[in-house]
Design a protein around this nucleic acid. Structure first.
Lengths: 354, 354
DNA sequence: CTGAAAGCGCTAACAT
DNA sequence: ATGTTAGCGCTTTCAG
């Protein structure tokens, strides 16, 4: 292993000069040509900066941890992780990943992370609900992603659920639908209540009275399908806003069973833009995409800004590789930060090209 | 921050004694009561073991990295990560996560990881195909997970694709099906060819001649549905083995459209046990589950055994929190290690309880 | 502009 | 059975 000492020895200079140059902080302190030489020699000798030694000396580590109790069961965890890691990399941070299933494990992992000098934590959930971060994390830099912190004790970012309901419903209205049903879920999460509120607001703004008979809230399986079937049979809507893509599938089932054509006889829009569903359904399902990548990206930027100050996004120190929607500024003080969601148009709404 | 020096000072003993005790390696070298005192004092003083300092001194870090170029797009990445992290934690390792989209990034990340002294790498893919690990990784401990290393240059673990085809088909045969169709995919991956081979083998063993008209290979969307519809119309099978759950959905669509009942008129089995599909379909889809957790677990155990020797699984140093199938021994020398897959029975095959 | 030297917290000979 | 001490590779005053 080659060290700065080796480089210094070989070049007959001191380690401090080498260190300065390798940290790109040799403004007016090292002769430019010497600096170039050092860089070249380091390269030639196959030098690798030792983060361990540097962190030990500096007492700070440039690491964050991504913690979730459901990395395993979260179909979109990958997108959040991807966004967070993209930002972390651009800011020179490494990211540990911790699947915190069970309190005991988290305690142990946390102590381990303290030992590693982990500077900040991203706490991610699989669906937008009120959460409390584990006690052990409470007095450190934590950002809650894809959920809403119960007491505002930590910054959090979550999808704009009301906006989702509003824009999905408006999309159907703009396509000409007038009798729009809503298929929700049984449990009253932030997502459920928010999306339904948006649905009502959009109807109201369009001057269409809210009709309770057009609402159904189902879980899954046969009972769910039967409830949806009953709703559609009895109310004959021309458009359906489904809480998520999985629920939208019941509308497809209904259409197949009753000889209707989705996208002309009946329009439907889901939420999730779930790859497997939206690319498999015939015709392809139009859906609102939850900005998982963007939330992960924001989360990493936020927690790093809590560690070292500044706003990596507005300062252009981190640029998302992908974003369907605008990422909020890190410096904003509203919590939860609400992130808008984009409609991914396919072919399940009347008027869309096929 | 409290250090072993602080503990030593407070107790009027030497740092080496403290170090020995805190590393649980004080067999016959420290008085048991002194050891107990040290442990207690450390606890009281809020001491945290400094992994950075220890790693720097020892020249080894107890870290691995999980690398994938598609953490983002892999719906099951979470399960693989979960399995790997479970094993890593039990073996005292921390796991970095790297989403390697793009060569440039990987180079940069890799250099960063070398600086951190990362000891081993898990290279995971989203589907079983022949892969080459990135050049830069080649002379380090690497394990390929959920894919097959092209030249056998690194150990790898992948689902037993032939076994999947065989057991799914046999499951239909055992349920009484005699005309079994196969819906495959267009591209000839290891998964496609393997599953189809298993299908043929099972038919052969049951004395049923292979009929090419019962085979269709489709991608997705309307053309896919139409091809499936044609197959089912023309050949009227009593069972369908689908390459994956997404393709099985077309059989459901067909059944709805033609007034058939899945699970009695027509049996179908998929692969993936995709939560969204298998819990949404009516009736619920029976499916072969790919052992993602188990592969991740195996991968971490394997790479750690490459670093420090031994076999964590057979030595009971790591125990999976979940396993539907038996995890292969790490010491096995076949590569790729083939991991069996379990059928998760639901209600889409004749004879299953509903 | 460059060098010398102390020390981050821990481990492992080597002493005692 | 316990203590002393020399570093691991790097950063950072402080001197020149």
């Amino acid at each position: 292993m080659v060290t700065i000492k080796d480089i210094a020895a070989k070049m007959h200079i001191s380690t401090s000069t080498v260190s300065l140059v390798l940290n790109h902080r040799y403004d007016k302190r090292v002769r430019p040509d010497l600096a170039r030489d050092i860089l070249r020699t380091a390269e030639e000798m196959g030098y690798h900066y030792n983060e361990l030694a540097a962190s030990l000396r500096k007492g700070a580590t440039h690491t964050i941890a991504f913690i979730s109790d459901q990395v395993a069961t979260t179909p979109y965890a990958g997108e959040i992780i991807h966004g967070a890691q993209d930002a972390a990399r651009q800011l020179g941070y490494m990211m540990f990943i911790i699947d915190a299933d069970g309190k005991r494990n988290l305690e142990q992992d946390l102590s381990h992370m303290l030992g590693w000098g982990v500077g900040g934590y991203i706490y991610a959930k699989f669906a937008n609900r009120l959460v409390s971060v584990p006690h052990a994390l409470n007095d450190r830099p934590v950002v809650v992603v894809n959920a809403t912190e119960r007491n505002g004790a930590h910054p959090s970012i979550a999808p704009d659920e009301v906006g989702i309901g509003y824009s999905a419903t408006k999309y159907l209205l703009d396509a000409g639908c007038r009798r729009i049903a809503y298929i929700g879920v049984g449990v009253g999460t932030l997502a459920q209540t928010g999306r339904m509120t948006g649905y009502k607001n959009a109807l109201h703004d369009a001057g269409i009275p809210f009709d309770n008979r057009l609402i159904v809230r189902v879980s899954q399986g046969t009972p769910a399908f039967e409830a949806v079937e009953r709703l559609l049979d009895e109310t004959k809507p021309d458009g359906v806003f489904a809480f998520n893509d999985a629920r939208a599938v019941y509308v497809y089932d209904y259409a197949f069973k009753h000889g209707l054509t989705i996208g002309s006889d009946l329009s439907v829009i889901g939420v999730d833009n779930h790859e497997v569903i939206c690319d498999t359904t015939v015709p392809a399902l139009t859906s609102v995409e939850l900005p998982h990548y963007e939330m992960g990206f924001w989360g990493a930027c936020k927690v790093i800004s809590m560690i070292e100050g500044g706003d990596p996004i507005t300062e252009n120190r981190a640029t998302p590789a992908y974003h369907a929607v605008t990422i909020p500024t890190v410096s904003g003080d509203k919590s939860p930060a609400l992130i808008p969601c984009a409609i991914i148009a396919k072919q399940s709404v009347v008027g869309e090209v096929s």
